[in-house]
């Protein structure tokens, strides 16, 4: 269970972003998070994955702090895959940075073998996003924070990505926090949904 307790966070003291935000994500749970731009959705996602440290409150995984080293059990998937890869590495090396997915897993996510010898700039955003999602699914991973990962995808690719992720999550009981502006998408994917506004979470 991934638990955030009374998180408070601000980038500058005069502008509080999150105030006393608490959230629980269980194994196998799909939780939706919506909110306007600048509401702090991505910040909350990064706090949960340990990319940022809260000024108050804590994030725990089964009652313990997030590990300091090794493959992180909570993975944050950012919106822009181009910024999440090393442009000087070939796609194959990027994909296998943390673990080596099987051919079947590659196929499930629509990752083609011919991409692996290319450099990231010669793949499209959608292709690269699938690489990034697959890269984050190492066996140690138990929770995913999917931060607008399908915004740049066409409807069919978006659907296929979510179907693949849904299958994988079901098999492994991954907990997934889906951050998106797209309320229709959240309604389809997540039985429980929260809205972040003025630093507070409300269910919808």
């Amino acid at each position: 269970m991934l638990k955030a307790r009374q998180l408070s966070f601000h980038f500058s003291p005069s502008v509080p972003l999150l105030q006393d935000v608490s959230l629980t994500l269980r194994a196998g749970q799909w939780l939706g998070l919506s909110g306007d731009s600048g509401a702090g959705k991505s910040t909350l996602g990064q706090l949960l994955a340990g990319y940022l440290a809260p000024q108050a409150g804590d994030v725990t995984l089964d009652g313990e702090a997030l590990p300091k080293s090794g493959v992180q059990p909570v993975q944050w998937l950012p919106q822009s895959p181009e910024l999440a890869v090393n442009p000087r590495w070939r796609v194959g090396k990027i994909l296998r940075e943390a673990w080596t997915p099987s051919d079947a897993q590659c196929q499930a996510f629509g990752v083609q073998a011919k991409w692996l010898s290319r450099f990231p700039q010669s793949l499209s955003g959608g292709e690269l996003q699938r690489i990034c999602v697959l890269r984050a699914l190492a066996p140690e991973v138990r929770f995913l924070v999917a931060d607008e990962i399908s915004t740049m995808l066409d409807p069919i690719t978006q659907l296929e990505l979510w179907q693949a992720l849904k299958r994988e999550a079901e098999q492994r009981q991954l907990g997934v926090l889906v951050i998106s502006h797209d309320t229709a998408l959240l309604e389809r994917l997540c039985p429980q949904r929260l809205h972040l506004s003025e630093g507070q979470l409300k269910p919808w």
Partner: peptide, 18 residues
């Protein structure tokens, strides 16, 4: 298929494989 794959429509591949 593109139209039906939208989350506000069927959110399904409409029985059509890739």
């Amino acid at each position: 298929a593109l139209w039906l794959a939208l989350p506000d429509n069927a959110f399904a591949t409409a029985g059509m494989s890739r």
